[in-house]
């Protein structure tokens, strides 16, 4: 490795590689701000843009309402991914 070259370490995932069942589909929760991301999602709908149906949107009055506990509760119930947009 050359001097000064930055070594970027890949973050190691704590999850074991497991067989993915055939009937599994990603289950994703999106927390969206009523005034920006939710409106954007609405717009995407109006524009008839296709996007995966696995994303379930939860509307918040503002992403500031988002609480760590909401995210943890989602994972607790076996959700596969969570994203917040605002």
């Amino acid at each position: 490795m050359a001097i000064g070259e930055e070594k970027i370490e890949e973050p190691i995932s704590p999850e074991k590689q497991r067989e993915i069942p055939d009937d599994w589909k990603p289950n994703i929760i999106a927390f969206a701000c009523h005034y920006c991301a939710f409106a954007a999602a609405d717009l995407a709908g109006v524009m008839r843009l296709p996007y995966p149906p696995n994303v379930k949107v939860i509307r918040l009055p503002c992403t500031g309402k988002l609480d760590q506990v909401y995210i943890l509760r989602a994972f607790e119930r076996g959700v596969d991914g969570v994203f917040a947009a605002g």
């Binding site: 506990v69 943890l72 509760r73 607790e76």
Partner: peptide
């Protein structure tokens, strides 16, 4: 009380 909520959630995940 908020940290209690978070810790409880983490413990439930570990338990399951």
């Amino acid at each position: 009380n908020k940290e209690a909520e978070i810790l409880a959630s983490l413990l439930r995940m570990r338990a399951s």
